[in-house]
């Protein structure tokens, strides 16, 4: 569903949005992309098209500011570009960037293995755990 260019852009964007994503091993990177692809597959076709268009737009847009496409920018400039999108004056770009962020967070934090890296360890027997902690 995602082209190789779109996959590459998502991985590059992810390493700016969640810096730890740059250190994912090959299997986890594949899982990151698979989660995003699966989420897109369940969305309306129009939304899938809009998201793919957004990825292309975001890769090209830095040309107007830096004279280079996103994939050729250094990390710091990528971060500046995303900061501008997020707080900038153009509502459509802010919302588009929010959509990109949401997908990246889904791909990264949606992996069950991520829970242990964020000190999140829920239990179906949460009350038992509460009780034990209260005794301690």
């Amino acid at each position: 569903m995602l082209s190789s260019g779109e996959r590459l852009f998502l991985l590059q964007a992810a390493s700016v949005i969640v810096p730890e994503a740059a250190r994912l091993d090959a299997g986890s990177k594949e899982e990151f992309l698979r989660i995003i692809e699966r989420a897109l597959e369940t969305r309306p076709v129009a939304m899938q098209r809009q998201f793919k268009m957004l990825l292309r737009l975001l890769n090209l847009a830095p040309v107007f500011y830096y004279g280079r496409t996103f994939d050729t920018l250094e990390t710091q400039k990528r971060r500046e570009f995303f900061s501008w999108l997020q707080g900038g004056p153009i509502g459509l770009l802010r919302k588009g960037f929010w959509g990109l962020k949401a997908m990246v967070f889904m791909g990264y934090y949606g992996q069950p293995e991520a829970a242990s890296t964020v000190a999140y360890a829920p239990s179906k027997e949460g009350n038992e755990k509460l009780e034990k902690m209260a005794r301690v």
Binding site: I17, V18, Q86, K101, F105, Y109, Y120
Partner: peptide
């Protein structure tokens, strides 16, 4: 909320967002 839901509801991204997310127990 859960990790993904929490992450997407925070404004921002990058190192400070990651640091904040890294301790959901806080």
């Amino acid at each position: 909320y859960f990790p993904f839901t929490t992450a997407k509801n925070l404004a921002g991204f990058g190192p400070e967002h990651s640091r904040f997310m890294s301790r959901m127990d806080l």
